[in-house]
């Protein structure tokens, strides 16, 4: 596969390490009343879609960017590649 890195352009998937569902960005609030349940869901419950899937890839043999890759798990078509830090900010994460 070829991943079109937002900074570096098209790169072979061999340069990357795969992590999984991009929902891992949405780490719950540790002080929430139901933090235990939220963390349980965050850690263990994932969708496993046949079709479009947003997933985390790490450009380990490259610029060490974490990317959010939108990939169709059936056809392997990649429709979108974003910097994970941009996605995280968009989803309200800061520090």
């Amino acid at each position: 596969m070829i991943i079109n890195h937002p900074i570096l352009g098209p790169r072979d998937a061999q340069e990357f390490t795969y992590l999984g569902d991009a929902s891992l960005i949405n780490r719950p609030d540790w002080q929430a009343d139901d933090a235990a349940k939220q963390f349980y869901d965050y850690q263990y419950l994932r969708d496993n879609p046949a079709g479009e899937h947003r997933e985390l890839w790490f450009h380990e043999q490259g610029d060490r960017s974490w990317l959010v890759v939108t990939r169709n798990t059936v056809t392997h078509e990649i429709s979108k590649v974003e910097l994970a830090s941009d996605v995280a900010r968009k989803e309200g994460r800061s520090k």
Partner: peptide
């Protein structure tokens, strides 16, 4: 790799 995940994906503004 994990530390970069924490830095970029969890606390991007640190």
């Amino acid at each position: 790799r994990h530390m970069e995940f924490c830095r970029q994906c969890l606390w991007p503004d640190m």
